[in-house]
């Protein structure tokens, strides 16, 4: 029957361009609102804000919860709250528009179609994001769906939800450093030098790894992989060949520049200390 339907009236919209990207702040907000959900509420739902990139990817950058009530066969969404909140967000950043909605829990329930219908009236082709805060499958699953109506002639049969690829790379979170976002408590923010130290350590580890790999290949312990080999060759080739003397000169020039700056800033500090003492010293007139 499905095959027959496919042949005649069913429309399957092309999904090639549809995909979604979610920033860390959205996941954080959803988790936080789940933790703060009202008594006896099973799940939280809310609006996703963001933009549609030129290539059709939906970039979800912000979100807010919308209070709702749910019983066996109906869902009541606080539409006024939704509109107020959207107006407020719009004032801050007019570039962020409604792109869909989220719900916690795994999979899609009957009530979801009703809410999705509502969001379809707000925006064309909304996406639906589910965040499994209960870890029902044993892992943290975040999924994005788009929906299309299945209809036979004029008759509405069902809403079809189709999963779309989701990009969870969270580039902005990378700037903060995952260490801070992963653990439940971080006693102290890393300062300049500590951050640099950890980066250098990571770099050393990576270089050691490459060394080991190259040595292993040379001694025949590991089967060579041309792709990796080319990568290493490209990386090494991207470094211009400098004679040690030239490099020394460049390096020491640079250090001297920096030292000069340090002298400058140090002398400034000393001057300030003196100036302050003079300025607040008792004036003998």
């Amino acid at each position: 029957m499905a095959a027959a339907a496919e042949g005649s009236v069913l429309l399957f919209p092309s999904t090639s361009s549809a995909s979604a990207r979610v920033e860390a702040v959205v996941v954080f907000n959803i988790c936080d609102s789940y933790v703060r959900r009202p008594d006896q509420a099973e799940r939280v739902i809310g609006t996703l804000l963001g933009s549609v990139l030129p290539d059709g990817t939906v970039h979800v950058r912000n979100s807010y919860v919308v209070p709702h009530g749910e019983s066996a066969d109906q869902v009541a969404l606080d539409i006024e709250y939704h509109h107020n909140m959207y107006a407020s967000h719009h004032k801050v950043n007019p570039k962020e528009v409604i792109v869909g909605w989220f719900s916690t829990g795994f999979g899609i329930s009957g009530g979801s179609t009703l809410i999705h219908d509502f969001y379809s009236r707000e925006v064309q082709n909304p996406i639906h994001l589910t965040v499994d805060t209960g870890f029902t499958r044993g892992d943290a699953s975040i999924k994005a769906y788009i929906s299309s109506n299945l209809s036979l002639g004029d008759r509405h049969l069902a809403a079809q939800f189709q999963e779309i690829p989701l990009d969870l790379r969270m580039l902005e979170a990378g700037k903060v450093g995952y260490d801070i976002l992963k653990s439940t408590i971080v006693e102290k923010l890393p300062n300049d030098l500590e951050g640099m130290e950890s980066s250098m350590e990571k770099l050393y580890v990576l270089i050691d790894e490459i060394y080991k790999y190259v040595d292993d290949v040379v001694e025949g312990r590991v089967a060579p992989d041309n792709k990796i080999g080319r990568f290493i060759a490209d990386t090494v080739a991207s470094m211009p060949k400098l004679s040690p003397a030239a490099f020394d000169k460049l390096f020491s020039d640079r250090i001297q520049d920096n030292l000069a700056l340090v002298y400058l800033s140090s002398i400034t500090r000393t001057q300030i200390s003196i100036a302050e003492k003079l300025n607040t010293a008792a004036q003998i007139l």
Binding site: A173, K182, T184
Partner: peptide, 17 residues
């Protein structure tokens, strides 16, 4: 400044990253 995260968030981040 200290940074804290709820256990839920921490689980998600560890799983996703």
């Amino acid at each position: 400044i200290k940074v804290s995260n709820s256990a839920l968030v921490s689980a998600f981040m560890t799983e996703l990253e």
